[in-house]
């Protein structure tokens, strides 16, 4: 699901991210614009499009037309309206999981990188979590906690945390060997201050890249869970449950499954490209190879 990536700690002489970093990278700029459009859709769709839950049995399985841009499903519901409204769900899950995974990952990763006992306990715990397939764990968690958007976010977050913890810990281990950390110890800085002022800011690069991949994989995982019927409750339109419902009519009305699938692909591609562009910008060695400044 996630592109495997081998990240190294950012070299200390790496330029700080300029305020308008994306202006130098067309890829990043395009990503920001497309993602911005998705955010606008997510925010405004419920006020602009037709009722996504209105059932109209006289207009079942209609192909795309002027009236229904994306066609209708087996209950005559407007696919365009459902797809647009479903954006909100996907983005909420994507951002929600990315933020909670980052927060948890940073907290545990910092602790594990700086404390021997933290490392022993938490890293073994993470190894244990990693041994269980993510979707399986998520299904079990949803079954245990019952449906709802929040539960879906929690269920996808937990299996994603170990990878973030490992990344943060490995970056922390490299950064804490840097002479400027020794210098901070010498001038009498406390450990929390060193973590906050010297270690954390220097992990932002690899961390933000990993966060974008987590967001993509969460959006896909939400669709997978909904497709399997354990994700978003059916009364809320989501790309996953739309595709699950459209599966039975795939040969008759491919648009039911096609349009949410297309949206899913576009957003996954966009966020992935943004992640790559960020990585190139933040890793000085990659930047040099690709000729970027």
């Amino acid at each position: 699901m996630t592109t495997p990536l081998a990240l190294s700690a950012e070299e200390p002489q790496a330029p700080a991210l300029p305020r308008f970093a994306w202006a130098h990278s067309p890829l990043l700029l395009a990503g920001v614009v497309i993602l911005g459009i998705f955010v606008m859709i997510a925010l405004l769709a419920p006020f602009l499009v037709a009722d996504p839950t209105a059932i109209n049995t006289s207009k079942r399985l209609k192909p795309p037309s002027e009236m229904f841009w994306f066609g209708t499903d087996h209950l005559g519901r407007d696919i365009f309206a459902r797809t647009m409204v479903g954006t909100r769900n996907s983005l909420l899950v994507g951002f929600g999981v990315a933020i909670s995974v980052t927060l948890l990952g940073v907290t545990i990763g910092l602790y594990a990188g700086f404390s021997k006992w933290g490392e022993r306990i938490f890293m073994r715990l993470m190894d244990g979590l990693m041994a269980i397939p993510g979707v399986l764990l998520a299904i079990a968690l949803v079954a245990l906690l019952r449906g709802g958007l929040l539960v879906v976010i929690i269920a996808i977050t937990i299996p994603e945390v170990p990878r973030m913890v490992r990344l943060v810990r490995s970056v922390v281990l490299t950064v804490k060997e840097q002479p400027f950390v020794d210098a901070a110890i010498s001038v009498g800085s406390s450990t929390p201050k060193i973590l906050w002022l010297h270690v954390l800011p220097n992990t932002i690069g690899p961390l933000s890249v990993q966060a974008t991949y987590v967001a993509v994989s969460a959006i896909i995982a939400e669709a997978v869970l909904s497709f399997l019927g354990v994700g978003t409750p059916p009364e809320i339109p989501s790309w996953g449950n739309m595709m699950a419902e459209g599966r039975a009519y795939f040969q008759l009305a491919p648009w039911i499954i096609g349009f949410p699938g297309l949206m899913l692909s576009i957003i996954a591609l966009t966020v992935n490209l943004m992640g790559d562009a960020l990585r190139e910008r933040l890793d000085p060695r990659l930047a040099r190879r690709s000729g970027l400044k």
């Binding site: 200390p12 002489q13 700080a16 002479p179 110890i185 001038v187 009498g188 002022l197 010297h198 220097n202």
Partner: peptide
Amino acid sequence: LQSSRRQMQMVFQDPYASVNPRL
């Protein structure tokens, strides 16, 4: 230990790595 650190300070070998690039 902190108060004894005040009495002695270090100048490091590598001026590129001994200052935090983000400060």
